Each structure stands twice: as C-alpha cells, then as structure tokens.
Amino acid sequence: MEKTQKIKILQDLVKINSVNGNEREISEYLSNLLNQYGIKNEIIPFTDDPSRSNLIAEIGTGKSDKVFGLTGHQDTVAVVDEQKWKYPAFSATIDGDKLYGRGAADMKSGLAAEVIALIELVENDQIPDGKVKLVITAGEEFGAPGAYKVDPQIIKNLDAILVGEATNGNVTYAHSGSFNYRINSHGKSVHSSTPDLGIDAINGLVAYINAEQQAFSDLPVDDVLGNVQHSITVIEGGKQVNTIPDSAHLLGNVRPTPAFGNIQVRKLIEDTIAKINSETEFNLEFELLHDFYPIRTAEDNEFVQDAKRVSQSFYPDRKIKTYANNGATDASVFVQSNPDAPVIILGPDNVGTSHQIDEYTTISSYLNTIDIYQQIIKDFFA
C-alpha cells in the first residue's frame, strides 16, 4: 500500500466523530477496506443500538493451530472545548510530522495500523500458517460494552494478544484493572431548622469517604504495579439549601492489581458499607458500574521481549522500554476468558496527548507501527 493511502486512511478515521458512539461508521469504513483485499470480516452490530458495532477480521491458512490476536477500539473520549484546539478536533490536520485530531493517538492510529498490517501481509503473500484474529470493539472508553459482546470462544482461542493503544513504541506488559462503583445514600428529608428529626444522606457519604481512606490504607503491594490506587471522583446530593437531603450518591474508582484483585476490592467496599450501616443511622447501598481486571505478563516473556526488539529496530531515535502502568484496556475484559495468554500493549505516538486538547500522533510512528505489527506477527509464527 502506498504511503499516501496509509495516511489518508488514518485521516478518514479521525474525521469520523465516534465519541463513545457511532462506531458503526468506523466498522463499515474498515470492512469496506478489508473487502477490497479479500480479507474475511464481519460487522457485529449492537442489538440495542444500531449505530454501534464490533468488527472481527481474520487472515491465515489455518495449517497451524496457533492464533494471534490483535485488538483495538473505535470510540474516542469527548471533545470538551474545541475552541482551545490548535486545529478542529475532527479535521485530521497534518502539520509537519504530526497529525492532529480526537482519537489520533487513542487509538485510531493503532487501529489503522492493525488493519493495514493485515492488508500488507496479504499483499506481500506472507499469510501466516495459523490465524490472525483482529478484534475491533466499540465503547472501550466507557464501560467496554463491545469487549463484553465479543464471543468468549474467540478470545479463548488466542495464543497471544497485542493491544494497539498508543505507547510511543514502548511495550506495556502489565496494567492495573479499573473498578468503578456507586454508593447510594438513603436518608430522611426534613426542614433544616430541625435537622435532628432527619437523616442527612450527604453525611452518610462522608462516613463512607472517611472509612474508605482507612480501608485502602494497608493493602498488599504488587511487585510490578505497586499500590492499589483508589479515588472518590463524583459526589452529588441535595437540591435545596434549607432542606436535609434524603438521597445522595458518590462515584469511586479503584485500580486493582494481581496482588489485590477485583473480587477482593468489591468485598472490601461492601464490608465497609455493612459496618457503617450496622453501627450508624445511615443506609448505604453499593452498585457496581464497571469491573475490569488487571493484566500481567512476565517482563521476560518471549512475546514481550520480541516485541521490544522489533520496535527498537524501527526506532533508532529512542530507547524502547518495557513497563507497567495503571491504565486499563479491553484486555482487562478479555483476560477473564483467557487468563493465560500473554498480553502486550504497543502502539504509536503520542500517549501523552491521549484524551487531551491537541491530541496528535506522528506520521512517522504510525508508519513504523504498521511495519512493527507485521514483523511481530511473522516472528510469532516463525
């Protein structure tokens, strides 16, 4: 494929507004592209929302039982204040080596690179003896509904998984999970002139916030991912200044690790709430919103080290690193079906601009990533 065509494909994807929705347009664009090269693919629409869909593609002769997994997501986070952007957020403007736009880094550049990598393997008659499955999802940025809709049998059959999120060419071999929850506080409403006759639902949340700090203060430390990170991120309650509120809620986020996982996090929160309910007049209720698991592949795993070596060969301008972080990806869902498959995250520039104003990738890293993915796939089947 010509360089200009590769760049145009990325620009086309960035120009499609898929802010946590409208993924169907991305799926149809990529499906049409794959069809031009005779690559088997299927759009899988959401039954509850026809504007959203996953896309599954596959190449390979099937002569070997080995299956390599590539995955990426089609949605982006929102554009909060486009007036502050250097260029319009969906213009895919190129300035020098940089291509600007919402999703340019997270992760339409990685997604386009995955698709083009398959196309070029087919074009160059380098189709693997096994199979390469490309799993493209909707909604990763909020709730990962697309990842949960992928047939678990597809994931169970994968012998390795590469997630194409932006990493600046570095290789992530472990990341924390993400556990989002809501605490509903039920009280009794009265006039603020007689607060003793009521139960302030906001004070119930205060009791939980104070207890939460203590509950998470002394947990096992993971030798790779470190401490379990925990935050209260949203509080809402009360509508009138002279009325004791009878309802309030908060939202919290926890980043579980293999040393203290999702099941343990949930039990800790539920036990904390039960203690408050039994010892006070407050009535708190737990609600699980999202439950993403941590992933961890050994740093010295052959898959990790080969990816690092391949990436380094295409980036003479930088030292490629392997590292762990506290992010989360669709792999957090997939490892629940296939906990033994090695997983890496590897993609183009610029991870530091993901979700930010003036998000961008670099053309050079995008083109490198296409070649990196092809080489990793060929090494995997060698």
Rank of each mutant, 00 (worst) to 15 (best):
T4M: 01
K6P: 04
I9H: 10
V14H: 02
V19L: 07
V19P: 01
E23W: 13
E25D: 12
I26T: 03
S27M: 04
Y29G: 08
Y37Q: 12
I39N: 05
K40F: 12
L55R: 00
I56R: 01
E58I: 14
E58A: 05
I59K: 00
G62R: 13
G62N: 12
K63E: 13
D65W: 03
K66A: 08
A78G: 06
V80R: 13
A89R: 03
A92Y: 05
G96E: 14
D97W: 08
A104Y: 03
S109D: 10
S109K: 09
A113W: 13
I119G: 01
I119K: 02
E120T: 14
N124G: 00
D125C: 06
D129C: 07
G130D: 08
V132C: 07
K133M: 11
V135K: 02
V135N: 00
E141Y: 08
F142V: 15
P145K: 14
G146D: 03
A147G: 11
P152W: 02
I161G: 10
E165M: 02
T167K: 12
Y181P: 10
I183T: 11
N184W: 06
H186M: 04
S192P: 08
S192F: 05
T194H: 11
I199R: 07
A201Q: 13
A207W: 04
E212M: 13
E212C: 08
P220K: 00
D222H: 05
D223V: 04
V224F: 05
L225I: 11
G226T: 03
N227H: 14
S231R: 02
I235N: 12
I235D: 06
K239Q: 11
Q240C: 00
V241S: 15
I244T: 14
R255Q: 12
T257I: 02
R266H: 11
R266T: 14
E270D: 07
I273D: 13
E279C: 09
L284A: 09
L288F: 06
L289P: 04
L289W: 01
D291L: 05
E302T: 14
K308H: 01
K308M: 02
V310S: 00
V310Q: 00
S313N: 04
R318A: 14
K319R: 10
I320F: 07
A324R: 01
N326H: 13
N326M: 14
T329W: 01
T329E: 04
A331P: 09
A331S: 15
V335Q: 11
S337N: 15
S337T: 14
N338T: 09
A341G: 08
P342Y: 02
D349T: 15
T353P: 01
T361Q: 09
I372E: 00
Y373M: 03
